[in-house]
């Protein structure tokens, strides 16, 4: 199966590298990240209380950028999966000697890799500019050490890893929508509306642990609180366990759902 998945990933790369939409999306996304950076930079200079560090600026920009990344992810998956159905190219692909699940896995892994590259580019961008502006020093309050730079680096690393895992789970769920709906516009509309409803639902404490976007935003929220020296909502250990289990359950659910749908999906037109 993995050889088939690799074949699909290579084929997908042949398609994606010529996609102007992908290039335009990346440029737009980086422009949005730069805009977020400027906004937070101004915020830090004018109204920040406490001691601003590069960690706070990085966490804030990443937290704002991740919403854009989620939207970009929806676009990428919708155009990668649903577009095959709406354009009719699925008829060329599904008659080749590879299983449908390999095809879907290859598509989704390529999307994960693309998004990971975007996420890493964002991280590098904010680390460089925030580091130049404010530096990554220990978080001190009147000569008392609140958090060392070492523990903040580890927290940032953990935040990025947990967010990436939750984004991968979101990719699987959007792919299921794309398989069912079969056109990019409908997929994007449903995903955006669902994301908005889930954002509202996450205000209820009872529902929050069940909602996948919580696992995208919660580590970033925790990191921002840590970088400002505020009390943490929960321990990193508890947050890591919750996010890991939640994301993995959603990945498994998305995988099972997708494999069920993809086997039964018919190409009618």
């Amino acid at each position: 199966m993995w050889r088939e998945v690799c074949r699909v990933m290579i084929a997908e790369w042949l398609r994606v590298r010529k996609s102007r939409a992908m290039a335009a999306g990346l440029v737009t996304y980086l422009a949005v990240v730069a805009m977020f950076y400027l906004t937070y930079h101004l915020l830090v200079r004018r109204s920040f209380t406490g001691i601003p560090t590069g960690f706070y600026l990085s966490g804030s920009v990443l937290s704002a950028a991740v919403t854009s990344l989620e939207f970009a992810m929806t676009l990428i998956v919708a155009f990668s999966v649903a577009r095959e159905f709406s354009a009719g190219t699925i008829q060329q692909v599904w008659v080749r000697p590879l299983s449908r699940m390999s095809w879907l896995s290859g598509k989704l892994l390529t999307s994960v890799v693309v998004l990971k590259v975007w996420w890493v580019l964002t991280l590098l961008f904010v680390l460089v500019v925030a580091g130049v502006q404010l530096g990554f020093s220990d978080l001190m309050e009147k000569e008392y050490l609140i958090h060392s730079a070492g523990s903040l680096w580890w927290a940032l690393l953990l935040t990025v890893a947990l967010t990436t895992l939750a984004l991968a789970a979101e990719i699987g769920i959007v792919a299921v929508c794309a398989l069912i709906i079969g056109n990019p516009g409908g997929t994007i509309a449903v995903a955006v509306i669902a994301r908005f409803i889930l954002q509202l639902a996450s205000n209820w404490d009872l529902l929050r642990p069940l909602i996948l976007p919580t696992y995208v935003t919660a580590p970033l929220g925790q990191f921002i609180a840590m970088s400002k020296g505020l009390p943490l909502p929960e321990s990193w250990g508890h947050l890591t366990r919750t996010c890991l289990i939640g994301s993995l359950v959603w990945i498994l659910a998305g995988w099972l759902w997708a494999s069920w749908i993809v086997k039964r999906r018919e190409v009618l037109n």
């Binding site: 074949r7 084929a11 080749r96």
Partner: peptide, 29 residues
């Protein structure tokens, strides 16, 4: 064992004819 051409074959319009075939060839291994 099967090769198939549907009534109106669809391709990736942003790619060239050669790139389309290379993509499908990859999928065939």
């Amino acid at each position: 064992q099967l090769g198939i051409m549907m009534e109106t074959p669809a391709f990736y319009n942003q790619l060239t004819g050669r790139e389309n075939l290379q993509l499908f060839a990859r999928l065939c291994g």
